[in-house]
Amino acid sequence: MSEKTNVTGDDAKPVSIWHRALDSDLFHSFIRKPVIVASAIITLAIFAMALFAPWLAPHTPFDPSSLNLMDGFTPPMTANQFSGNEYVLGTDNQGRDILSAIMYGTRISLFVGFAAVGLAALIGISLGLLAGYKGGWVDGLIMRIADVQLSFPAILLALLIFGVARSVLPPRVMDEATVWVLVVSIALSDWVQYARTVRSSTMSEKNKEYVQAARLFGVPAPLILLRHILPNVMGPVLVIGTIGLALAIILESTLSYLGVGIPPTQPSLGTLIRIGQDFLFSGEWWITLFPALTLLVLALSVNLLGDWLRDALNPRLR
């Protein structure tokens, strides 16, 4: 429609947030797409599984005292030939229950994913706001750093940071901090997207009259950025964040798979896949297949959600 109807607002009564959310266009676009609903349910189920792993998992895979080497290499859904124990998804070489390992592994993968996205978003949003609002040489500097950053493949950068950390930090500290080093390396290779998006939104928002009005009232720049501009540039960040979560989980798995990530004592999904691949060709396919499937389903669902969110929030595609 070329002409927009005016909203009078005369008859509008304050409605609850729940009511507004259920009545929103976003919710309706969501509920009409079965694939997206399924993705959301799967994603939530995996989140719940990871979050409540200590209570849900049938075994505690990282407690050496509970492991029985005799249980090693038990295929899925079959009784172990020595102990007679049965495992839904089988066990690995050390007799760890694959299902429990996946639950705990997803927990670590998701933690790294969320933390990395959070850190990347924090860095990216801050620098993007600064570059977009200040302009001039500040903008030039930040964006050139971003350009340089982009010319390195993310994985290479993460490997580099990880390598530097390993050579700088003493081994004991490094062991404990592995997860955090991983988070930082993923975040540092991922912030550019946020910065670029936030910068361009900021540049268009800062020329809008509501920002000029705030400047007129003498509101200091940091407050204008925080209270006026930030809430209005968060839409695209949400989309990048969702897709970024999938990417971060994959990047974490890749690094762990390459052996620079989470150590086998506390395996993430990537570590599990790596452990399993040694036995792939000796017939113990389940050790690597189930973690890999979990990773695939998780990354796919989150990605689908992100794609849908991007389309649903983009007024031009609606």
Binding site: E209, Y210, Q212, A213, L216, N232
Partner: peptide
């Protein structure tokens, strides 16, 4: 600053949504 205020052209852009 306080004594001089402004009313903007576009009422759709001048209020933070």
């Amino acid at each position: 600053r306080r004594r001089v205020q402004m009313i903007f052209q576009d009422p759709f852009a001048s209020l933070n949504p």
